[in-house]
Design a protein around this nucleic acid. Structure first.
Lengths: 343, 343
DNA sequence: TTGTAAGCGTTATCAC
DNA sequence: GTGATAACGCTTACAA
């Protein structure tokens, strides 16, 4: 087979104009540019006839800008990140930007690898929705890499709760969890358990800290035994349910740091014959769709993921020298999974 | 600010070698290549010191290959596509491939636009998990674009049920729905309703056709009135529930073409005081996590999305001249949302 | 307005 | 094994 790829050159030749002119027409260069006579039409016609599609690599190389933004999440199949990714993709679309998405599956090493790869791709910006590790050994190298990216003219948007390079977006994990705690105490609860999730994440730390802070505001503490680390799965929640059921001082309320985990706690308790919320109340965090769909519907803290995604893209497009910070606060959503504790 | 971006040239100079040598070292060119003396080490050291990261655009341009694959889905925030995307990303990772993901939100026009954009990015392959429109006016232009991509040496993997360019993956929508129908009839049901969803999609058509076929196998037909078109949302399901509740000849079993819709039917019926499955049984399709998490748990047909994603990437990497076809069959999963009809 | 030509950062093809 | 040097397909001064 001969060369099958169509170059701008080919278009130019077919239209009988120079490479430069063809380029100008196809880029609608200056708003005023129309080309003399039917030059413009000839080029357009030639491009259409040949099925020409510009080579973005060449364009990126020559113009030193790309129309891509990188998005780093933990796991797209997780509803939280799925929703976020979707809103990022949607917002990017409005600016004719393509999104290259990578999933770290909560592994700092693979996150580092991906940031490097992304950097190699020279995107306009990188949105870090994952990251946020509590250990310097884990986040350090990633930050370094991001700094280099910035030094080379790239924009970074960090959604992580902790420190971060570039623009910062903070979703109110701490504040939201604290408000949730207040609401639950007001309901009458005094003994709590927390399904903590992966402790290496800043998000987790913030939610747990916020929640405990909220309890502390009322002079309540969570017993060490009632802190259950785990992963972010439904199964983790179910295991917590078992532990609680046979716990000596059974809490009257369980806070699951992720909705999915909380849903697992609910399911686990139900399977063990414990009534929710009659005997034990359960609350989650994030308000992913699942929360409203289980029975009883889950009390949780809603995060406006839609806005967050949009805003992230907006920030990704602002090359301001001074990093900006934008915050979003969550709302406590009381549903049927929580009720006053049994008398 | 001076130029802040590090070129291979810079690395070569710092290492005191030629551009070509630096390139060879960094690409571990031939397995045997080691460079003479400490040449290799010097280059590596220089690259590390400078924080060099290759420019993939330049590389793609020079080598005429990229390490990117394009993925087109309807909506990542939809559990089905979230799961699929995740498995694609995961599989791609094993081959050090980056995934550029676009969402069409079920709009043929935006799908066309995206395929063009993707083509411009010159990915190694494009995986079409969306598409599959029933109307030629809609899928035609997209297929054309994909053909051009193929002609230029790209690989296409089509997950759509209908026709498709390149390698084909067929998930057993028809067969799965048919088996489901059989199972439901065996349970004793004779009158059915179908929450159809968006009729413009091949996936929908296949599931509906398969289901009706399955009923037909037992001499059962679905009344026109019992076919409810809509979108793929939970709300659509709830509306169907209302319609059914007040329907003159109320069906004893409802098939929702998407799990989310079916879940909506369940929730809607429950809200109206109709017992599921006591009075009406409900089944869905796809077995997304939600299906197992609602109460009662949803009977559905499971699709091995994990395998599908992996396989899609495998196919994306096979440049075989003859398009291959791989099929996956779903399994009927009976859960608590279906039971024999009331006597 | 248009064309000529010089890059953009790599890889690949040559000689050496 | 190594180093010049010509592509790769495009944008963008600079000249005409």
């Amino acid at each position: 087979m001969k060369r099958t790829t169509v170059r701008l050159q080919d278009v130019a030749e077919l239209a009988g104009v120079s490479l430069a002119s063809a380029s100008r027409v196809l880029n609608a260069n200056s708003p005023t540019y129309r080309g003399r006579g039917d030059l413009r039409e000839r080029v357009l016609a030639a491009a259409a006839e040949l099925g020409y599609e510009p080579n973005l690599h060449a364009r990126a190389l020559a113009s030193a800008t790309s129309n891509t933004i990188g998005l780093v999440v933990h796991d797209v199949s997780d509803a939280y990140f799925g929703l976020l990714s979707s809103s990022v993709v949607r917002a990017a679309d409005k600016h004719d930007l393509l999104v290259t998405m990578v999933c770290t599956y909560r592994d700092p090493a693979s996150e580092l690898k991906y940031v490097k790869l992304l950097r190699a791709q020279r995107p306009r910006a990188i949105i870090m929705a994952a990251s946020g590790y509590t250990q310097k050994a884990q986040y350090g190298p990633i930050m370094d890499e991001l700094s280099k990216f910035e030094a080379a003219g790239g924009v970074v948007v960090s959604l992580a709760g902790g420190r971060g390079v570039g623009h910062r977006m903070v979703v109110g994990n701490k504040e939201g969890a604290r408000s949730l705690a207040h609401a639950l105490v007001e309901l009458g609860h005094r003994t709590f358990a927390i399904a903590v999730g992966p402790t290496a994440l800043v998000t987790v730390r913030d939610r747990v800290d916020g929640f405990r802070q909220g309890l502390a505001d009322h002079g309540i503490e969570v017993a060490k035994d009632n802190l259950y680390p785990g992963d972010t799965s439904r199964e983790a929640g179910m295991r917590v349910a078992e532990a609680i059921k046979s716990s000596p001082d059974r809490p009257t309320c369980v806070f699951g740091v992720f909705d999915v985990v909380a849903a697992g706690v609910v399911a686990g308790l139900q399977r063990l014959g414990v009534d929710v919320p009659g005997e034990v109340s359960v609350a989650g965090f994030a308000d992913v769709p699942l929360a409203a769909q289980i029975t009883p519907a889950l009390t949780t803290v809603s995060i406006p993921l839609d806005l967050v995604g949009q805003q992230a893209v907006d920030l990704a497009l602002t090359e301001s020298a001074v990093p900006r910070t934008v915050s979003y606060q969550g709302n406590v959503i009381m549903r049927q999974s929580t009720a006053p504790p049994p008398a």
